[in-house]
Structures are given as C-alpha cells and as structure tokens.
Amino acid sequence: MDNRPESRDPEFLLEVSDLVQSFAQPRGILDRLAGKPQKVVHAVNGVSFAVRRGEVFSLVGESGCGKSTTARTIVRLLEPKSGSIVFDGEDISKFSASEMMPVRKKMQMIFQDPYASLNPRQRIKDIIMEPMLFHGIASGKDEAHEKMFRLLDIVGFRPEQADRYPHQFSGGQRQRIGIARALSTNPAFIVADEPVSALDVSIQAQVLNLMMDLRDEFTLSYLFIAHDLSVVRHVTERVGIMYLGFIVEQGDCDAIFGNPMHPYTKALLAAAPTLDRIVAAEPLKGDVPSPIMLPPGCPFANRCPQRRDLCTTTRPQLREHSGRIVACHFSGN
C-alpha cells in the first residue's frame, strides 16, 4: 500500500509523506432524507516534509491552512486519512494505541492555550509526575518527585510552587508548566502548536528563549506551528509555508524569508506588520477559498497577482528551485 523505498534516512527524525486529513461535516436528518451529499472539509491535502534530528522545522500559515491539523495528525490525536508518518524509522500512521505507547514517550506536545492545556483540578506536581509514573520513567514516587522538582527548576519555578493549582499562575507561567509536562517523558521530539501566540510580547520572548535553551540541553527536535512570521523566523532552521492544506513553499528559513518565490509567501511576508518598514505593500485582495470545494487549479489562484489561465485549471506540483521546493507554475519568473 506504500510504494516508497524502504531505506529511511537516519538523518531525519520525522518524515511525513503525502499526509491527507479530511473531516466529514455532520449532516442533519433532513439533509440525509433529501439525499444531499455529505460535505467534506479537506483540511490537509497531501503534505510532505521531514524534520532532521536536532532541528526546528516550522509550518506557517494563516488560520484554516491545515497546520494545526497536520500537527495533531502527526501526534496521532487524529487518525490520518492516508499518507505515512515515519518517526524514528517506523511508520506510525497505522499504529494501534498499544503500539503507540513507546512512541508517545518520545513525542510530546506543547499547546496553544495556557488556560485550557492544564487540568484545573490537578496540582502542578501531579501534572508533571503523571506522565513519568505512567511510562515508568521514574521507578517510584520518590524518584518522580526528584525529577519533577528538577524540571520545575529548569523551567523557572521554586519547589514550594509544586503544590499549587494552575489558576494560581499567569499565562506565561502556565505555558512553562506545559513545557515541563512535555519534557517529563524525556522526549526526543516536541510538537509546539502556536506555543506563544496567546502570550504577551515580553513573555513570548521568555518562553521562546526557554524553548531554545531546552533544545540544546535535552537535544530536542521541534515541529513548530505558528502564524507569526517573525516568531518563526527567529526559531526556525527550515520552514514550510501552508495554504489551504497544501505546502506551497518549503526550504531554508533564511533563504525563503530573504527571497520568497511563491506569490503567497511574498504576500504573507509583505503583509506582516513590522517595526521598521518605510512603505507598506499593497495588501492582498480577497479571501481564502472554502476547504469544502477545493479549487481545481492552484489553491492560491483567486488571490494571486500573477495569475494566468493555467493556474485556474491545473494544480501546480512542488518543484525544486535552487535548494527549495515551490508549488507554482511561474515561480521561476
């Protein structure tokens, strides 16, 4: 069912190929009786990328582009519709819950909303010790306690704060608790889904710095999901730009930010507000098309300033262009 070569590159910790995710919209009884076809939201439409060991790879895009859905499918919170997810040499896309168990230990997640991501009825120490005790990372309560205090210290808490509940902390502090929880299983790979977008600017910098320090200390690789281009640029080695469930451009972060090739990447960079721009570019017109009725051609065609006839009829494939890949018929020009 999978015709890719068996030789998997040990350089890559995660290889995602042709990942597809879609959701059927619930139909009411009346719609069913009327025989209306089921509407399907095409959230992720064949996404491929790889994360090297020790690397930060980012997926960037606007809301509804499928970046979070991709992340949640990779960690198997959602079942992939098709495609493969090779993690540390194993295709986990069809793993059962019990097969996933050893993988879960190595793959953790940091969430977007610091208020919803911690159980309000659990003490901080229990939030951090639960994964350790479950996976047998600590041999007993004493060792778990010791590890928990060490993790709390690393993310900047005093030991006596371990007995408190989440509501006694600020957003930035909660996010650091979430990071400590993610680290509690000694993971090699962390999916960070918009980890700083809910935080104040000055706190954002603290959390980003902490995440980067931890990468060195724990030899972590990150899949970073974000909409804020400046944040992405700051932390990322390689980046994939997503639009309507497709990756439209992918490659080295500095190269793409310095010289975007896909018209959408260009527009995205031009639209991001900056502190030091003299003249603002003409903003992009129009809205993102509906993911229920994908356009037959290029997903970006209806808003693209360089659109030609070919773009509305034929979907462009990802092609290699000077060390990066771009899905545009005319990206060379």
Partner: peptide, 21 residues
Amino acid sequence: LGSIPRITGVRTPRLPQIPGM
C-alpha cells in the same frame, strides 16, 4: 521593542527579554 522578533535583518541567537512578569 527589544523582545519583538524581527522579520528582517540579522537573527540573534537569543531574544532580549524583559525579566519577570
């Protein structure tokens, strides 16, 4: 101003941050 990452210019390894909250 210092803690805002920039979209252009040189990338610094660490963002300057305001300590505490």
